[in-house]
Design a protein around this nucleic acid. Structure first.
Lengths: 356, 356
DNA sequence: GGCCGGCCTGAGAGCGCTCCCCGATCGGGT
DNA sequence: ACCCGATCGGGGAGCGCTCTCAGGCCGGCC
């Protein structure tokens, strides 16, 4: 708890360097259009005085904040039990840092917080928002679009892919459906014929997409082989018990995530089924401590979570840039022909371990 | 990606309500000293116009930002593999939200980021900082103190408890040592005589404190019963193997965290030792998916991580408040007689499950 | 050698808000 | 009913910065 000291202003630097405020400003902001000797002199003055620009003053006039809000809306405690968001945050952080932007974290505990978040975003305190909304019926995305803040979503939002309101919805997601297909195909390739699926909570698009992927391969799967889980180990256990009771001859399980797979594994062990000999199990996420630490280690579908975060940030920043200088950019990944960012779906890879 | 609209100013609200800017300002900032009918009129104007104060303009004059930086310095990937920070963040977020403060997240990937963080903090963009520095030799805390920003640390910093530089170091930590004592006493109470300890990385104060707690109880423990781990399952496995090789008659293990305990558990199973019959195992953290999901479920030491976060934020905000109006506050927890915040060590509780 | 053009530099006007200070206003006391 | 004190409202300055604009300097070209 130390007193803050009064910091030098642009004016002070200008005086010290013997130039005008404007020149110092130019140097501080890149130095274009200032001749080398002056640049040098100003740089030195900045250094000596330990000058740091006052962001508030700067924002006041530029109307930019070099800050992005990250909104994590998750009513359930579950979220924080897995490293998913942490990894995304890290990816986001890296990308933002590289662009000298700050990360303002907005966590909501429930719908009662939504108004606050909406107000904050609408308040123009940040240049854009990265929003994680996992539930189909979540009002938050709508609220945010209403705030008129450039936004990129993490995970496919519930309303589908198409445009809605003004402008297309931009999101970054893993190829949940494709990954699920790969997982199930792998099981089928192993010669398994009674492949079951423990789903995630079906109010989340990722769970729905994984189920769709399962169905893509198991076109006429016995509906009794599909049991709803909730992405938790306990849910996995419950589902596995149901599965075993309903259909004892099941010889493979595709669990919608590693956590439920670990629960399934435990029940299988408890019931004396060998994995993978009697029942092959595949998870999803490649959540390391869980997947690698499982017994046996879990074959699973890996998604590059950190990269998702990085990409979200990149897409947002790119969109932000475009508003300033509207020259045609070189379309990169996640950028349509017009240069406007478009959604990106990242590939997944199957990681083979012992369980299948 | 929607265009932002130009937002109404104080002036506009004033015009609409038929009062002066100052009056609107007063109402917006609490409404003291304005008569009820006027307050009402202003409130309505604010509502109708959807006015939100421009934080940049406000900060420019008040020199307050209503924002706190959360610095998470963790060179290792490990951090994000556990929900520790996520839970703290949540506690912090709740508390900050209640005080209308924003949370600016600063993640560092390594020492190369420290200068950036130092510059940001010194730049006076935030009112204070909450810093997680886990390593004894981390230069970051010093750097931050140098920046002259009010700071509360998460976890006891490496340089010990005493004051250093200007003002005391304020931190919030779990009672790692006491918790460790409880864990070991529990094992001893079970009649175990050859109690081993798998430590955490000893460049972290939490690991050191837990080791100290172990030693407090096992005063003349066979040094061969203490093996250094690294808070990971793999480290726990390694350590357990060493332990079993060195000292096959070991009948209890206190692992410095749940992750290493889970590794130990796996090795014990692999070597045919029954838990808890042959070897009792206690972990630390009560990291739920790991502890509850372990086989057998882990007896462990629970710390209230979210509360730690909440307390950190509360301490910081309280310190911040004191700088404004310096009236003597009612000393609460974590507040010395002078009203200045002091460090807090939170109690831990032993959670009994099947492993010991 | 003179003139024109281009590139740098400096002066000044605010961005939206808070807060100080003074004038206005209202209530109470006699 | 009058005066005084306390309290409330309005005007204005200025927080630190950016950015436009006009002027100055230098080089090049004829």
């Amino acid at each position: 708890m130390t007193e803050a000291v009064s910091r030098p202003t642009l004016e002070a630097v200008a005086a010290r360097a013997g130039v005008s405020r404007a020149t110092v400003s130019r140097v501080v902001n890149g130095g274009d259009g200032v001749r080398e000797p002056l640049v040098e002199r100003v740089r030195r003055a900045v250094e000596e005085l330990g000058y740091v620009p006052n962001q508030a003053a700067r924002s006041l006039v530029t109307r930019r904040h070099d800050a992005v809000a990250v909104v994590i809306a998750e009513p359930e405690t579950r979220v924080f039990a897995d490293p998913f968001f942490a990894l995304q945050l890290r990816g986001i952080s890296k990308e933002l840092t590289a662009h000298d932007s700050q990360l303002v974290l907005l966590l909501t505990e429930g719908p009662e917080d939504y108004a606050r978040v909406g107000r904050y975003l609408a308040g123009g305190h940040v240049d854009g928002a990265l929003v994680f909304s996992l539930h189909l019926d979540d009002p938050l995305p709508g609220l945010i679009r209403g705030a008129g803040v450039p936004t990129v979503f993490g995970g496919r939002p519930g309303w589908g892919d198409g445009p809605r309101g003004d402008g297309p919805t931009v999101y970054v997601d893993s190829d949940n459906r494709g990954g699920a297909r790969d997982a199930v195909r792998h099981l089928v390739g192993l010669g398994r014929t009674r492949v079951a699926h423990i789903t995630g909570p079906l109010d989340q698009t990722s769970a729905v997409d994984r189920l769709d992927g399962f169905r893509d391969v198991m076109v006429d799967a016995d509906p009794r082989l599909i049991v709803e889980g909730d992405f938790t180990p306990a849910g996995g256990e419950r589902a596995m018990r149901v599965l075993l009771d309903r259909c004892p001859e099941v010889d493979a399980v595709f669990a919608a995530n590693d956590l439920s797979a670990s629960g399934a594994l435990r029940v299988l062990r408890e019931r004396g089924r060998r994995v993978p000999e009697d029942v092959a199990v595949v998870g999803f996420d490649d959540m390391l401590p869980v997947a690698e630490g499982a017994d046996p280690p879990l074959t699973t579908v890996r998604q590059d979570i950190e990269e998702m975060g990085r990409l979200m940030a990149r897409l947002l920043l790119r969109g932000l840039d475009r508003r300033g200088r509207d020259e045609a950019a070189h379309p990169g990944p996640g950028e349509g022909l017009g240069g406007a960012p478009s959604s990106v779906v990242l590939p997944t890879t199957l990681v083979r371990r012992a369980s299948a």
